[in-house]
Design a protein around this nucleic acid. Structure first.
Length: 225
DNA sequence: ATGCAAATAT
DNA sequence: GATATTTGCA
């Protein structure tokens, strides 16, 4: 009687996995880079871009930011390390960043989280142990470039179709998930503007999150402040 | 454009 | 049923 409805409970889990996400992997070690890319592709991720320097990653992101959904970066890298990258990305755009490092130092993970990382994965020298926390990488991708899943609440396809009076299929706007990462971005933008001269419109522009509407920002402003 | 209450989705 | 978000309205 529980799951009697033909709801694709388990199958939908598989089909809703974020395989469509385009991942930008950054690591100075070419071996790790290859292993990671191979692992990700094996995990069915369709878009995987790799690069060996944070600076390159930044130019890629600045050039086609809409193309990427998440950044997976190593913490230890010469020149610009993961934290620096995380900081710059967080400053210039809204994109979740996942940090990786061989060490299991919890402090590193904490530091990453505090600086806006959406999580940290520990990578064992040989295998691949993925411990991740934080929010899911998917956010509100709407006005991106290519095929983006924009399926939200379309009501479970009616069982039969004997409901003629319920033509209320007025699709509501996509529900915004104000997860920690997005909220932090919001907060930093608000602080940047000044808690006294905040304007939903300005916030929206500075946040620069595709899909987010002025109302979303305004409402969140009320709720959170 | 902002703030609030009601409606809705999770 | 509570909570989080979106709508609609003043």
């Amino acid at each position: 009687m529980e799951s009697a409805k033909g709801g694709p409970s388990s199958s939908s889990t598989l089909s809703s996995l974020p395989f469509r996400l385009h991942i930008l992997v950054v690591d100075d070690d070419p071996t790790c880079l290859m292993v990671l890319a191979k692992m990700l592709r094996k995990c069915r991720y369709e878009g995987v871009t790799i690069c060996k320097h944070a600076t390159i990653a930044l130019s890629l992101l600045r050039g086609e930011r809409a193309k990427y959904d998440i950044v997976l970066t190593d913490v230890h890298m010469p020149d610009v390390d993961g934290f620096k990258l995380l900081e710059i990305v967080g400053l210039e755009m809204y994109l979740p960043v996942l940090m990786m490092s061989a060490d299991c130092d919890m402090n590193v993970a904490m530091r990453g989280l505090e600086h806006g990382s959406v999580g940290k994965v520990e990578v064992e020298n040989t295998g691949k142990k993925v411990l991740e926390d934080g929010e899911c990488a998917s956010t509100l991708n709407e006005g991106s470039s290519e095929k983006h899943y924009k399926r939200k609440n379309q009501a479970k396809e009616d069982e039969d179709g004997s409901d003629d009076s319920k033509e209320h299929r007025v699709q509501r706007q996509l529900r915004v998930h104000w997860h920690l990462s997005l909220h932090k971005h919001f907060t930093s933008v608000v602080n940047l503007i000044g808690i006294d001269r905040v304007e939903a419109d300005t916030i929206l522009e500075l946040m620069d999150v595709p899909g987010l509407t002025r109302e979303d920002a305004a409402t969140h402003l009320e709720v959170r402040f």
